[in-house]
Design a protein around this nucleic acid. Structure first.
Lengths: 203, 203
DNA sequence: CGATGAATTGATGCGTATCAATGGATGTGG
DNA sequence: CCACATCCATTGATACGCATCAATTCATCG
């Protein structure tokens, strides 16, 4: 199924998955007053999670190609579905943290790092090039900002030479670690609870 | 497993679920600088989604009681896990929209409506009473705000008589529909795509 | 009844949205 | 092949919402 930029699909069938073969496909929610939130971005090879019953849109951000993949009951299909949904839940939770607690600069840093990992090509020892076929508006709707703010934050990265923007859709990050340092880090180990920490492994 | 307020659990075992029997249990992420985002709230009867590997905390917001429930392979267990994770993903997506595109007033309105549905008791024809055993800080960390802002927004609801707050943990909503009107609505049908809408059912 | 932690309220500053103008890239028709 | 239209990105001026800091009041419990 070929889609042109901006084309939307609704009413995903329950007995099939959509797999992105080419392009960039967003799952988004749109409010009656026009506000849009992009919930997740799907790059080639990824399957679109089957949550989009009534209130989500599937939208091609660039010319894209979708395949349908039937879900055959039995034969480990439920396990595959669980794994897919589970991965999407982890991504959604990361995104949730970003929208709830990161400021604008942190959001764009985390976003570019993420996209470099998924779509980038390595450059030099520690850098990456990224062809990002989305408008500033699309990025803003993914990050809970607006297009002008995204543009300003990109300009700031450019001025500090953390990232280069030869064209609006081309991003070069000479040193990924330097960009990563602009995004907050999770605590990892060693963080202490308000009271006591109990390992459920011993419960 | 009993937990007191503020007590945290990490390292959920992969072969068991945690079920909330009593209390209110949050799944949250905490950054190294102290910022916290509550990802989801679990009320009695709900199972805690098995996403919390290394970087999430399970935390009792009030004195709580957790049960463990083993996951027996086979026998439709995967289908149950899928359903659980799927429901959590839908909730996460709703939350994502809230954090990305709702302003403060809309967030607290949506939050109180949601909690009334899950924990409230009907009052009168269209109202509800809610005992909400969370601090303003906890609410703020769920809604991506801070405690003072939550307090101010509650005060505004009080002044406009949309909600009453006899004690800090008691909320009375005389007319749920009036409160619901303060939260944005999803478009439902009739919304038009930028280009064409294609029903995947016919693909 | 006093102590402690939470909630409320106020004053102020910062970050992002909004409105507006300009510039650049791409595509179309004369 | 150039002129023009269109769309997107950028940049600036300004407004508003929320965070921060601080002081006071309130609730709860020993």
């Amino acid at each position: 199924m070929p889609l042109e930029r901006g084309q939307r699909v609704d009413r995903l069938r329950r007995d099939q998955l959509l797999v992105v073969r080419e392009g960039l496909v967003a799952v988004s929610v749109i409010l009656s007053d026009g506000r849009r939130q992009i919930l997740c971005l799907n790059t080639p090879g990824e399957s679109i999670c089957p949550v989009c019953s009534n209130d989500c849109w599937i939208e091609a951000l660039t010319p894209s190609l979708l395949d349908t993949s039937p879900i055959n009951p039995g034969n480990g299909a439920m396990e595959d579905l669980f794994r897919l949904t589970h991965n999407r839940l982890i991504s959604a939770n990361t995104h949730l943290l970003t929208l709830g607690r990161f400021d604008g600069a942190e959001r764009v840093a985390a976003f570019i790092v993420d996209m470099c990992r998924r779509l980038g090509r390595p450059v030099g020892k520690a850098g990456a090039t990224l062809h990002l076929p989305m408008t500033r508006d699309d990025i803003a709707d993914y990050l809970g900002l607006n297009a002008e703010t995204v543009s300003r934050l990109f300009s700031r990265l450019k001025k500090s030479k953390i990232a280069l923007f030869p064209t609006p859709t081309e991003i070069i990050v000479p040193d990924l670690a330097a960009l990563e340092a602009r995004a907050p880090i999770k605590p990892g180990e060693g963080f202490h609870a308000r009271k006591t920490t109990v390992g459920a492994t011993s419960g």
